[in-house]
Structures are given as structure tokens and as C-alpha cells.
Design a protein around this nucleic acid. Structure first.
Lengths: 259, 259
DNA sequence: AGCAGTAGCTTGTACCTACAAGTGGGCCGC
DNA sequence: GCGGCCCACTTGTAGGTACAAGCTACTGCT
């Protein structure tokens, strides 16, 4: 079912996690690993490449691979889904729907979702809670195809993305832009915090496997509740530093209705 | 000099950038590309895998690859180096050193850099400016090996990382943790902003190719000047959502001296 | 003892074959 | 006309060979 190289990668991950190859130590050579696992060197290399992408091992021509860090288990689903993430850290997620309506896309939404002006979107504002404490406001515009399925979802308790996947809507790629904003009076009310507190803002565009946009979201996290972590390296750097939020998106996102 | 697959990847990137294969369109098959470029299919696959890691193309068994987005040129160096990044967006970077001293590592610094308690670090506080406007405070602890070379660097004008690489100190991996904090009075004074303004905080641990820690830094960006962007996908997700800054690091980083 | 040169090991690159798994369009029958 | 089936095409997986490039440890010379 799963590919051989994925199985090998998983077993290597486990070997690193359980201390067989602690951070700072060197891995056996590709040749040795291939012999032990009974696979070709190319398969071992494929598996090790995955660990390299996750920043778990470093490699250099001529020298054996070095273990950089213990692998983190978080996957794409946990990143996109608040519910999945919450449960993975042992907290109880819940949600409170502030707004749910079908309406014409704003200019920003149309551009980000690849729609024409005034095409309809499903707009949802939810406050997300961890163990009953509000930690995030989620203002999401779904394309009609995905959004219409929301009527089948119990938004207060269920994970939207989990249910959508059951209906054949699969989130496969995402682009996240992260900056910091002060809480507006509206934000403060919804999150039960002081106005002006620093919030971590994540604007996210998620697409299906074909690259068709499915949602555009503006999430605001309470600063002392959540952080994002990225690993990168010379070989692989998915993180980009940008200049300034553009004025129109900054202005458009200061109210509930303008996202 | 450069590897074949890197050359192919570059040419494909350019073909996407210049509109030959616009976002949403489909790429030629691996077979066709291999023939056109005069290389093996495995080489084409290697190149396409790189584009996939950058979120530029999506691929699925059975169907041709889809172009997701125009590639961004930013590389690892531009992410680590404020100077390189600034010049790449056409702005003039500069810096103002507020503090530079050799002193014993704090508990946090020792843990992050893999040092023993009271091992010395070189601690630098710099305000970074874009076209003369302060946008970031950088509070960095260097391990002695790297930090001692700082005496050769003109900190007001030059890029630390560029000069260190000339001396054989190479930054190869980094782990970034991003959250939001309100500007302390100290931050506000250094950045010439109002206290309490939302700042984007990036804590960064960078290592050499072997995984040996070189620096631990806490950078604070003015929220409306800089944002970070990440692309990820089901296959590759270097981004991780974390719970809360730990109390000790949050407390330790509220003053100049405590980083 | 100390140093330089080298031989062997290790990873990187490039090529190849073969087959599996999944897509999509065209053809055929109804 | 329309729906279902099938086949050609496309990507994914797994294996292999050969050689290049770079590191390390050892040998042997001074």
C-alpha cells in the first residue's frame, strides 16, 4: 500500500526518535542502510531526501549524514485543520460561528480565489477555542463548490476540512503569509482580550491538488497562545520574507465584513 | 560546474516566469521535456521535484503536472541576511549597533546553542533600517567561533553573514519560530514607534552544515513593514504550528539584556 | 613526532530498464 | 446522442550501473 521509500523513511524517523541515532550523531552509510533494509541505494536515498526536507538530517558529499534534530510528527493536515492540530497537542478544540453567509466576493477575495468580480463565495467567521479559551478568529471565504457543502457540517463542533474531504474536496497546497497586527475592538471582543494586544495574522490561500483555489482565509491568533515554526536549509527554503502588507489588503481586513 | 538538474530546474523556472507555462496551465510530459533538454527522464524528475518543493508545480500520477504559481526567486541567503534581502527588493539596508559584547550565555542561549552554562557568547543588538527607516531589532547571540570574527566586520554597513562566509563560517540550516508581541518601551524607542504596536517576532537558530549551532537570534519586525510567506503541500510541510511561547523565553526576551 | 600524500569510503549526479497506478479521451454499442 | 469501456499516455516506484567529487583515516616519509 504505502511506498517502500516511505516505509523506510518512517523507520528511520523512528530510529532517530527513539535515540538509536541521536541529534549530532552520524547515520550509517547509504550502502549499509540499503543492505540492512534489503532495498536499493536509490530507495534509501529517496527516504533520506524526505528526512532532509524536514530538516531532520544534513548531508554532504564525502561525509556521512548528520542527524540535526528529532523529527516532528506534524503533517499538512494538522497545519490546515485547527481541530486536528488541537487534538494532536492534547487540547479540546471547539468553535463558535459568528457569521455564515453566501455573498458576492470582495475584490481581494475574487483575486485570491481566481473568481470574477461578484461571483458568490461562502463567508464564514468563526472563533476557535482551545479547552474553552478563545485563541483565534478565522475569517474564511470558500469558493461555492466547497462552501455549499458547509451546510452539512456542524460548525460548532466539527472540523470543516475533515468533513469536506469526505465529500471529495481535498486541500493539497497552501500559501501562508504571516505578519503581526494589533487587535481591533472587534477582535478584542470576539477573543475576550484587551484591544491593541498583538495578534499573529495568517492569511492563507489553499488549493486542491490541481491548483484550483478552494479557500482564502484571514486568521488572527492570540500572540501568546500560538507560534509557527519553520525549518529550512540552503537546499530547501520554502520561507520567504516579504515587504509590507499591501495597503488595500491591510485596510480590507480590519473589519469583519471586509475580509 | 552546476549540476545538470539544477540547470534544467532554472530553465523551467524561467519558462514559467516568462509566461511560457502560466499558472493553471499544464507542463509538457517528462518524456517530452527529457527529449527537448536532451537529458534522462530521471534528471527531469529531479528538476521537477525541486519546483514541487517550492510549491511551483503540482503533480499526480496519471495526469500532467500543473503550474501552481510563478516561482519566487528568494533563496536561503536572502532569508538569513537582512542586507541581501533588502537589496533584492531594491531598498538600501543599514544598521545601527546598540550593543556588542562578549559575555556568559544565558540559560536560554546555552540551551539553544548547545553550550554549557556560562560558556561565552558574543551578543549583538542591532537596529536594522530600510532606506533609513527602522524596521527591525535584531538581538543575536553568536557562538564564540563565529562571534570573534565580528571584530573584522563593519557592523554599521556590512552584512554579518556575508563576511562570516568569507571566513569559512557557513550558515546551512535554520529553524524559525514566529509569533506576535507588543512593542516594549525599549523596542518602541529603538524603532521610533509607539509602545504597544504589534511586532512580528522571529526567533531563529542557525547551524552550520554539520548541524553545529552558530547563532541564536530574536528579531522583532515592525508589523506593517515585513511579512513572511510560506508555501506548503501535502507532500511537503516544513511549517509547524506550536502552542504558546514558553513562559521563560517570553519573559527572557522582553529586555535587551535577557535574550 | 609531525606532516603530507594517498587510498578507500561516502555521497552526489546521470543514465538506464521495467513495471505499477491512475487519468483522460476516443471509440463503440445501445 | 449518450454512456460505458478500454487503451494510450503520464507519473510514481524500484531496481541497477557507472563515474565524479569530497572527506577521513591511515601510511610512510622526513
Amino acid at each position: 500500500m504505502t511506498a517502500l521509500y516511505q516505509d523506510v523513511a518512517l523507520r528511520l524517523r523512528r530510529a532517530i526518535s527513539d535515540g538509536t541515532y541521536p541529534p549530532g550523531s552520524q547515520l550509517p552509510s547509504e550502502h549499509e542502510l540499503a543492505e540492512w533494509f534489503g532495498v536499493a541505494r536509490s530507495t534509501i536515498r529517496h527516504a533520506l531526501a524526505m528526512l532532509g526536507e524536514d530538516g531532520v538530517v544534513a548531508s554532504h558529499r564525502g561525509a556521512r549524514r548528520t542527524v540535526l534534530a528529532v523529527p516532528r510528527l506534524q503533517n499538512f493536515g494538522e497545519l490546515r485543520s485547527f481541530s486536528l492540530w488541537a487534538r494532536s497537542i492534547g487540547a479540546e478544540p471547539s468553535g463558535r460561528v459568528e457569521l455564515l453567509e453566501r455573498r458576492a466576493a470582495t475584490e481581494v477575495q475574487a483575486r485570491e480565489l481566481g473568481l470574477s468580480a461578484d461571483d458568490p463565495v461562502i463567508y464564514v467567521v468563526r472563533v476557535r477555542l482551545l479547552d474553552g479559551k478563545p485563541v483565534m478568529i478565522e475569517r474564511t471565504a470558500y469558493v461555492e463548490r466547497a462552501g455549499l457543502l458547509l451546510s452539512f457540517v456542524d460548525l460548532e463542533r466539527e472540523s470543516i476540512s475533515e468533513r469536506l474531504e469526505e465529500h471529495g474536496i481535498v486541500f493539497a497546497h497552501a500559501e501562508h503569509t504571516i505578519d503581526a497586527v494589533n487587535a481591533t475592538p472587534d477582535d478584542a471582543r470576539l477573543l475576550a482580550i484587551e484591544p491593541g494586544l498583538a495578534l499573529l495574522r495568517e492569511r492563507r490561500r489553499a488549493t486542491d491538488p490541481r491548483g484550483q483555489a478552494l479557500e482564502w482565509s484571514e486568521d488572527r491568533y492570540v500572540g501568546d497562545a500560538v507560534a509557527f515554526t519553520i525549518r529550512n536549509s540552503i537546499a530547501l527554503s520554502p520561507l520567504v520574507r516579504d515587504r509590507a502588507a499591501t495597503p488595500e489588503t491591510a485596510a480590507a481586513s480590519t473589519t469583519n465584513s471586509g475580509n
